[in-house]
């Protein structure tokens, strides 16, 4: 037997669960990638900050303190104060909470609509599938930010509008990933066999398709979160997101830009918060993808 024949007759059953996901603990797997570990630490810190800020911040994030405007960083105000004497650290912490909630909400919308849509498109490859994917293409050709601006024009600026708009615009991401992965799984020999044995679409989706999509979805969620955080920040920077005085990273940037000559540091903090969080999510997403889907290793 030649080497090629040997390769062809290798049983394909082993593909049901992607290699690498088998049986070692999730934490150990995470730690095996420096990129994912670093990302997870950064994202973890952001989540902790957001949760803590619900109950405690050093000062009230909205508390105006006349006479204490533009204070440089000190022990009392580690990141200084803004143009109204508000504590920047407290505002940044509360801003984390708003940013993460809004981004998570958007990703949740995209996930809940996109995954089933992608699955249906994969199973019903006729007119239904075609309509779904054309719809996805239509949405995809509409940049998220443009969709958000349109929706804000209609509904007015609010956290909900921003979340909704970014979420809807992100649906195609999940629909496409789900569909293409599902199509790949559906064309494998063992699914063809399962079909031949008369298993229903729903059974096949649950037993074969979803387990295979899971790892890709998990990585995609992290990567999409970084995109939505950028979009949420951009919208609030443009004054189209959560309206003031609620502290948002984008809003803080926007108002700090008016005082560049007095206090350029004010720009730095929210800018850094956005960049570090996005960096962490990207690192986590890339790392997760490498761990969970070794075939994609090296691709960006």
């Amino acid at each position: 037997m030649t080497e090629r024949e040997a390769a062809i007759t290798t049983p394909t059953e082993t593909e049901t669960s992607p290699p690498g996901v088998t049986r070692s603990s999730p934490l150990k797997l995470l730690l095996s990638s420096p990129s994912a570990t670093a990302g997870a630490i950064i994202v973890g810190i952001a989540v902790i900050v957001a949760v803590v800020s619900i109950w405690w911040t050093p000062y009230g994030p909205l508390t105006v303190n006349t006479g204490a405007e533009f204070l440089r960083p000190s022990l009392a105000h580690p990141l200084g104060t803004d143009e109204y004497g508000r504590d920047v650290l407290s505002r940044l912490m509360t801003g984390t909470q708003i940013t993460l909630l809004s981004s998570l909400g958007a990703v949740a919308i995209a996930l809940v609509v996109g995954v089933p849509a992608g699955l249906i498109a994969a199973f019903r490859r006729g007119t239904t599938g075609e309509i779904i994917m054309r719809g996805a293409d239509l949405l995809y050709s509409f940049p998220a930010l443009l969709a958000a601006i349109t929706l804000v024009a209609a509904l007015g600026a609010s956290t909900l509008t921003a979340t909704l708009a970014i979420g809807i615009a992100s649906i195609p991401v999940f629909a496409r990933v789900t569909r293409s992965t599902a199509l790949g799984v559906l064309s494998t020999d063992y699914v063809l066999a399962a079909r031949a044995y008369g298993r229903s679409s729903l059974q096949i989706a649950r037993r074969h398709v979803l387990p295979n999509i899971m790892p890709i979805l998990v990585a995609q969620i992290a990567l999409l979160l970084s995109v939505t955080i950028l979009a949420v920040a951009a919208l609030s920077y443009l004054g189209l997101g959560t309206p003031p005085p609620a502290p948002t990273w984008g809003g803080m940037l926007e108002s700090a830009q008016n005082y560049l000559y007095q206090d350029p540091l004010l720009v730095l903090w929210p800018g850094l918060a956005i960049a570090v969080t996005v960096f962490g999510l990207n690192a986590l997403g890339d790392g997760l993808r490498d761990i969970l889907d070794p075939t994609l290793k090296g691709r960006s």
Partner: peptide
């Protein structure tokens, strides 16, 4: 990787 994480409007303000 760092370049990707910095949003363009933050970069713009830093350049200013």
């Amino acid at each position: 990787q760092v370049g990707i994480a910095v949003p363009n409007f933050v970069l713009g303000i830093l350049l200013i």
